[in-house]
Every structure is written in structure tokens, then in C-alpha cells.
Amino acid sequence: MAKQISVFLENKVGRLAHVTRVLGEAGINIRALSIADTSDFGILRLIVSDPAKAYQVLKDARFTVSETEVIAVQVPDSPGGLASVLERMTEQELSIEYLYAFLGTRGDDALVIFKVEDIAKARKIFNEKGIKFLDESTLYKL
């Protein structure tokens, strides 16, 4: 389980730089990020070292921000590693809204952030199928 910070961004010059500057000045480290974009706007998704603080400083800087529950999954850092995890999720009909990769690794494993429809179900399946995922405290410290 992990908290992702999502930020609404207009497609305008300098908006992304502004977000990252605000976080940097607050001493918050970005651990993973992805941007989903359309022609008018983008949605920036972040895993940071201190989500509560990040939420507050971005809100104070007048961004539209929300907190989203996501899951950080350990995936073998070898060819076919992600495929095997995804196949097991598909078998269990666990639908994925989106996913993106974490900037660091954990031992021999890569880390992938998943946003799924049903988090409780995901946890259960991961436990049963032996898919490793990280708790919040470990994740933010990586």
C-alpha cells in the first residue's frame, strides 16, 4: 500500500518545473513519477518521500492535488519479469487503471507502481500468488 500524490497540470510552459521546484524547496524527494497527458492538460502522479507534506505544500502553492492509494509491487528485474506478474493478475481478473516504474530497485527486483480498481482484492491475490509488494514505510525510505 502506498500513497500517490496526483496533480492537475494545464499544458502550459513551466508548470511541471514549478511543481518539482515547490517539492524540492520543501526538501521532498521524488521516488517515482509518471505523466498522463491529453492535448489540454496532464495528470502528474508522484511517489514521494513525504506524501502528507507534499500534499500540503502543493495545495499551498495553489495546485489541484489529491492523494490516491496505489500498490508498489516487486517485479523480478529480468526478461519476462513484469509479464509473469501481469499474467497472474489477468488470471484473477484484477483490472489495472495504470502503472509506472519506480526509479530505484530493491535488491534484485524492480519496483512497479500499480493503480488498481480493487486494492483489497489485489492484496489478497498478491499474497496468495506470492507476488511481493512493499508497505508504505519501506517504500518512502528507498
Partner: peptide
């Protein structure tokens, strides 16, 4: 303007 109450992290919902 997109307020916090209508903002979603999913592009689909925003569209």
C-alpha cells in the same frame, strides 16, 4: 477550473 472535488488521477474520468 478544476477544483479538488472533481479532480481525479485518471485521465479517463477527467475527459
Amino acid at each position: 477550473e478544476v477544483s479538488e472535488s472533481v479532480f481525479s488521477d485518471e485521465v479517463r474520468k477527467m475527459e
